[in-house]
Amino acid sequence: MTPSIVTAQALQEFIHSAFAQQGLPDADAAQVARLMTEADLQGSDGHGVIRLPQYIKRIQAGGINKQPDIRIVEERPAMAVVDGDNGMGHLVVSKAVDIAIEKARTCGVAWVSTRYSNHAGPASLYARRPLEHDMLGLYFAVGNANHLPPWGGMDMLLSTNPIAAGIPTDEEPPVVLDMATTVAAYGKVKAKAKRGEPMPEGWMIDREGKPLLDPNRSNEGFLLPIGAHKGYGLALIVGLLAGTLGGAAMGRDVIDFNSDFKTVTNTGQAILVIDLSAFGDPQLFKHNVDRLVRDIRDSARLPGVERIWLPGEQSHEKRARYRDGGIPVSAGVMSELHTLASQLGIPALKETAFA
């Protein structure tokens, strides 16, 4: 079915209204709405407004603290641990990034971990934030449900455990890598289900090791790691850094927030921020990154390849295109949002006609 097209402003206002109606302070509702809209603007449709009904269910069930006391509980000059008090993950991680940026100004580098956080949307939102300050960001997170067994096993003890990096440039779009340690993030599986599309072979297998293509049967199998055993190893390390190190859940302690709306997830994330000026002239660094980007883009291509893309370029282009021409929202997601609006007693999200 043809997707609906909505403006970023309409989407942000709708999300804001939903959270405000549920009792989030207005400033918090606005911040979460802005970040969720930014996710859809950059094409991360598995982590944007598609998650709103799920977030609202957790709030209504008491699984998320609407007015958390987000605070530092451990601190040294170049590190901190932030306790999110079970608040919305977008708020918790945003505060962690702000703290890391300020610490990096003094120390050159800073690591901030979170505990008792929640799902916070796409990793790239937070890896990009330091770029505005001539800093680069590295982000790690424990996924909010286990969909990955150890290599060769069947017990799902690991998650998609994403990693993201934001590298500043001068004239080129910033280099922004955002990847799950599985072939596909579970949000992409959910997005496929909402659009009524099958999964490509290689995303998931069933418990007999056969390809699983129906996203509506995803609970019958598990995601595959990138690079086989190497992806499993990377998922483990990311989880230890983002979860165990900061006192957050990992392994058997991870709560599946897709099916359990009440239990505190104790989600862990971590942000590493590096101030370019601690290593030399930031402008020279950005100039050198630009040069490398152009070398890669202009390098020889295999037959049939029209363009070599850099990490983050396609999201950068989508952001510009969707801001001008509207954000596509699948029919399945739009139907859920209309139902949600009716349940909450707020104005429905309206499709927009563009010239």
Rank of each mutant, 00 (worst) to 15 (best):
R301Q: 09
A300M: 14
I327P: 05
S299V: 09
R291P: 05
L337T: 10
A300F: 11
V329P: 01
G304H: 10
K286L: 06
H316R: 04
I346V: 15
V289W: 02
L340P: 08
P303C: 07
V333A: 06
S342I: 07
K318H: 10
Y322C: 12
E306L: 11
P282L: 02
T339K: 15
E336H: 04
M334R: 12
G304C: 06
L292Q: 08
W309V: 00
Q343I: 10
R323L: 11
A300W: 13
I346K: 11
S335L: 08
G345L: 11
P347Q: 07
Q343F: 05
S330I: 01
E306Q: 14
A320T: 09
L340V: 03
V305Y: 02
N288D: 10
L292C: 06
G312K: 00
R307E: 07
Q283A: 00
A300E: 15
S342T: 15
S342Q: 13
R319V: 04
E313V: 00
R323Y: 12
G326T: 02
R323M: 10
E317F: 05
R301A: 13
S335D: 12
R323Q: 13
L310E: 04
H316P: 01
M334G: 05
D295C: 13
A331E: 09
R291N: 12
A300I: 15
K286H: 00
V333G: 05
K286D: 04
D295L: 10
A341I: 07
Q314W: 09
V289Y: 10
R294M: 13
S315Q: 07
W309F: 11
P311H: 01
D290C: 06
V333K: 01
G325I: 03
N288K: 13
S335N: 11
Q314M: 11
L310K: 00
E336F: 09
M334T: 07
V329G: 03
P311M: 08
V329C: 02
I327E: 00
E306N: 07
K318I: 10
H338A: 13
V305K: 14
P328M: 03
D324E: 15
G326K: 11
F285E: 01
A341W: 04
D295Y: 11
I308S: 02
L340R: 01
K286W: 02
M334Y: 06
R301N: 03
V333T: 14
R294L: 14
F285R: 00
S342G: 14
L302F: 10
L310P: 00
Q314T: 09
L302P: 07
F285N: 00
H287K: 07
Y322H: 15
S335W: 09
L302Q: 10
P303A: 08
L337C: 10
L344R: 12
L302K: 14
V305L: 11
D281Q: 06
W309K: 09
I346Q: 11
D290V: 07
R291D: 12
V329L: 06
I327M: 05
I296H: 04
Y322P: 09
H338K: 12
Q283V: 02
Y322Q: 14
A341K: 11
V329M: 01
R297T: 08
L310W: 07
E317A: 01
H287F: 08
K318S: 12
R323F: 15
R307G: 01
S330T: 02
L340I: 02
V333W: 08
Y322R: 15
Q343H: 12
I308M: 01
S299W: 08
